[in-house]
């Protein structure tokens, strides 16, 4: 059923649901992150990005569902997971009364690094994050942009296999934004990176794959190029079909006007995402193909329509 091999996946989340009180913050969220991939969560504020990241990092358990990171269960084997992640929370919480180097040394020890390695890595990350002139400054006296750098420095200090960055460029000035993005791209060459953002161009620039999350649900999953294309003129249909995956995919691909078909299974159901050139309504054609092959057409939904609404709520332009 699953076309990706699970052992290639660094992070695998299945059917994550989290409730704050009666309202679900995220619902039935499924995704996988490949080793070495940079995955972006894109969504307006309040979409459920922070909740998802807090679950991945083991800060809180999901109400339902399961996440594994490097094949360790985030809840059951929390310590093994926490040894492998570097995390930058959204608000960049730092101990404001400590100088930068003491803080980094403290965080390094908490991560179980040997002291010689801590010393070496501190000078590395201070260079990488350009904190050189401020390494003795009390964190509370640093500007927002520099605090952000300290936040990134502590996240990468122990060279974690997975970096989780929640809104890494929020609230910092444009030049620092550019620098931070470049830094993340460099880090992503060797590490698995999961980041969240509400800025469309940012995600397009940094990420290899994007999940669009809206009102707690993943509404689209694609490469930045395809996303951009979709904005320019491709519609997408979500079709749920009861039938053999390979044959259905092949048959759907043959329909005129279809540009791409991808498959994912959601709670054991086969959902096909069909890309269609904009302006063509292929719903008739698709249902005919499915039915004529004796497969069951279980649902069909035009996704791009709703995506547009979400895009409207994203920050699509940057004022640099």
């Amino acid at each position: 059923m699953e076309d990706r091999k699970p052992d290639n996946l660094m992070i695998q989340a299945s059917e994550l649901t989290h409730y704050y009180g009666p309202r679900p913050a995220i619902q039935d969220v499924n995704f996988g992150v490949k080793r070495g991939e940079i995955l972006g969560f894109l969504g307006p504020n309040g979409a459920g990005k922070t909740t998802t990241m807090r679950i991945i990092t083991g800060f809180m358990p999901p109400t339902q569902g399961k996440v594994t990171l490097a094949d360790y269960d985030v809840v059951e084997q929390s310590l093994a997971v926490r040894q492998r992640i570097g995390y930058l929370p959204e608000t960049v919480p730092l101990h404001t009364e400590m100088p930068v180097t003491s803080y980094l040394k403290y965080m390094g020890t908490l991560r179980g690094m040997p002291s010689r390695q801590i010393k070496r890595r501190i000078s590395d990350v201070i260079d990488l994050c350009r904190l050189g002139d401020y390494h003795k400054t009390i964190i509370g006296k640093l500007s927002k942009g520099f605090r952000q750098r300290v936040g990134i420095a502590q996240a990468i200090l122990h060279e974690p296999e997975v970096l989780v960055l929640d809104e890494p460029t929020i609230g910092i000035d444009p030049i620092q934004v550019v620098e931070t993005r470049r830094l993340i791209q460099d880090l992503g060459k060797e590490q698995t990176v999961v980041l969240s953002s509400h800025i469309l161009p940012e995600v397009n620039m940094i990420c290899e794959r994007v999940l669009i999350i809206h009102e707690g649900m993943i509404v689209a999953e694609d490469t930045p190029e395809n996303l951009a294309q979709r904005l320019q003129g491709v519609d997408q249909l979500q079709v749920e079909v009861g039938g053999p995956v390979r044959e259905v995919t092949a048959a759907l691909r043959q329909i005129k006007g279809v540009t791409e078909v991808t498959h994912r299974s959601q709670q054991g159901r086969n959902v096909f995402t069909v890309q269609v050139q904009r302006g063509q309504d292929l719903r008739d054609e698709i249902s005919r193909v499915v039915v004529s092959n004796d497969w069951r057409l279980l649902s069909m939904q035009l996704v791009s329509m709703s995506l547009e609404d979400i895009f409207l709520r994203l920050t699509t332009h940057e004022e640099l």
């Binding site: 926490r82 040894q83 929370p89 730092l94 908490l110």
Partner: peptide
């Protein structure tokens, strides 16, 4: 209050 507990509890510390 400051939220630093988020980094403390996501560090590999019991």
């Amino acid at each position: 209050k400051l939220g630093t507990i988020e980094l403390l509890l996501t560090s590999p510390v019991r």
